[in-house]
Write a protein that binds this DNA or RNA. Structure first.
Lengths: 149, 149
DNA sequence: GCTATTGCTTGAAGTTCTCAAGCATCGAGG
DNA sequence: CCTCGATGCTTGAGAACTTCAAGCAATAGC
């Protein structure tokens, strides 16, 4: 550990794991307060962007497709999501948030006080900077690696 | 979008969930390549900082103490960690990484290519900035409490 | 039309997770 | 000392998560 650029990356990775732990703990606690597991909460969180096919959900959440079946089954049983047949491909089932599901995920997001308070410690300019850096590091990818879906 | 300028907190939280999701996916895949679950990997990751009591691990990983028992049982069965009785409190068991456990978590960290590549898209100054912002937002640490180490 | 692929579901086996109990140990007040 | 409450860890039950292998329906390419 002498001060090469690799040291920066390792320390940053370590901090990322700590940050993730804090965020994840906050999210999980908020989800639990609505009687949802972390996986169920994450699924609703993704669906908040809009409807998605089972396969797309499994890809985004990096889990097996058969795993999603059970998670969606339980969410549907609670009336938080709904399966709709795709009009263009009869194999596909699109999962849609119900009004109640939308309400629940919004409540969960609002309850993430620890994370919110942390971000509020930053100035407007700093939040802009953080946004730009995260987007470049974790979202913007070379076109060659971008999923072609 | 409400205000005059700047990213609002909700958009930043959304990006945060995407970014940490990417990190988590990368970590989980790396752990899986060593035949470890995400929870087992996270546990080794924490232990990489040094030995910890069962209770401390449960607190850091925000899970029930009884949950740690099972996770450590399986890691111990594989020879990746070891339980040692605390010399000062006979109730406490300290969990220590074995040499093999240390090797495995280091391999996992090294295999996180996606995250590493993402961070490498940032300049040295940008990584410093990201580090400082994350630390302030997620590691609320008043200067008075900062350890001198 | 045939065939390979894709999307989703089922079942089995193991892991994770929480809750309720239980045992052993520690710490503090009588 | 010694009882009592708190703490650290484990066990067992029940539910959810996770992956893999297998299977069915529908699509896409030939």
């Amino acid at each position: 550990m002498t001060g090469t650029s690799g040291v920066d990356t390792d320390r940053l990775m370590e901090l990322l794991s700590v940050s993730l732990g804090a965020y994840y703990g906050d999210f999980t606690a908020a989800a639990a307060s609505e009687n949802l597991t972390a996986s169920q909460g994450k699924t609703l969180n993704v669906l908040r962007r809009g409807p998605a096919a089972m396969r797309a959900l499994a890809t985004i959440l990096t889990c097996d497709a058969s795993n999603m079946t059970g998670i969606i089954d339980r969410l549907e049983k609670r009336g938080l999501v709904r399966r709709e047949p795709s009009p263009t491909d009869r194999r596909v089932k699109n999962v849609v948030l119900t009004a109640e599901g939308e309400r629940v995920i919004d409540v969960i997001r609002a309850k993430m006080d620890t994370t919110r308070a942390g971000l509020d410690r930053l100035s407007t300019e700093e939040r802009d900077t953080l946004y730009a850096l995260l987007e470049r590091a974790f979202v913007a990818r070379p076109a060659a690696l971008r999923p072609s879906a």
